[in-house]
Amino acid sequence: MAAKQPAVEEEVQEEKKKGGGKGLIIVLLVVIILLLAGMGAMAYIMLSGGDHKEGDAATDAVHGEAAHGDDGHGDAHADAGHGEEGHGEGHAKQYSPKYKQFEPPLPDAHPEYFVMDKFVVNFYGDGQAKFLAVDLQFMSYYPQITGETGEMEHLRPILKNDIQRLLRNQHFNELNTADGPDHLRTEILEIARKVLEKHNVYPDLLEDVYMTRFVMQ
C-alpha cells in the first residue's frame, strides 16, 4: 500500500497541471474578449465622434449662410437693386450686351457735355421770322459718349445733318409758346439718341440736351 502512494501523488500533480493549463487558457480567452470589446467600443466612439463633427460642420454651414442672408436668392436680390437704369450705382447704367459696353462712371462723377456747332437755319416763320438760331449742349455721365474723342464726336456730321433737318421743319407758331422750346429739346434729344442707337450705342447713356441759345428772327 505504501508503494502506491507516489503514483497517487503523481496523478494529483498531473491533474493540477491540467487544471492550471485550462485556467490559463480561460484567462487568456477572457483577456482577448475584453480587448476585442474595448477595441469595438473605441471604434464606435471614434465613428460616432466623426459623424457628430460632420453634422456640426453642416449645421455651422447652414447657420453661416443664414447669418449672411444667403437663401439662394442673393444674386436675385442684388440684381433687383440694380435694374435697367443701374439704381444704387450712382449714374452707371446696366443695359443689353448687344450694345457697346463702356466702363461705368464713378458714383460721384460729374456730367460731361458735348457742344454742337451753332445752328442757324431758315424755317417756317409764317411771316413773323425767317431764321432760327440754336446752340446745343448734350449731357452724359459717360465721357465715352460726350468726350473729345467720344462716340458723338465721331458722329458729329450725322448729328448735324439730322438736327438741321429737324430745325428747318419747325413752325414759328409752334415754337412761339411757353413750352415750344421744351418740345423742340425733346425732339432733338430723340434724334440724337436714334443716331447713337443706329451705331450700336445704348441711347439712354445720353441723358439730356440743353439749348444755351434759342433765337427766332
Score class of each variant (00 low, 15 high):
E84F: 03
A109M: 04
A3Y: 14
P105N: 00
M39A: 12
G69P: 03
L36S: 02
E15G: 08
N176I: 07
G21P: 06
L47P: 03
P203S: 05
H199K: 01
L24T: 05
F138I: 02
L106N: 09
A3F: 15
D60N: 04
T149D: 11
D117L: 04
K53S: 08
N122P: 14
T59P: 08
G81Q: 14
E15Q: 15
L205T: 01
V31C: 11
R213Q: 03
L28H: 08
Q101Y: 11
K100L: 12
G127N: 02
Q13R: 14
Q94E: 05
D135R: 05
K118A: 10
E15L: 15
G90H: 14
A109L: 05
F172S: 04
G69W: 03
P97K: 04
I26R: 06
D75S: 07
A66K: 05
V209K: 02
E187W: 13
N200L: 05
D204P: 01
P181E: 07
L167W: 04
D71G: 13
A129G: 00
M39L: 12
I45A: 14
A178G: 02
A61D: 13
A66F: 09
L106M: 13
H68F: 04
A67N: 00
L206F: 12
E85W: 07
A78N: 05
F214P: 01
H77N: 10
K130P: 06
Q128V: 06
L206H: 07
F131W: 10
G74F: 11
E10Y: 11
A3L: 15
P111M: 00
L159W: 03
N173W: 08
E84H: 04
L166N: 00
M42V: 10
I188T: 11
K194I: 05
G83C: 01
L24N: 10
G86C: 09
H63C: 11
T212P: 09
Y44C: 09
Q164A: 15
H63A: 15
A58K: 02
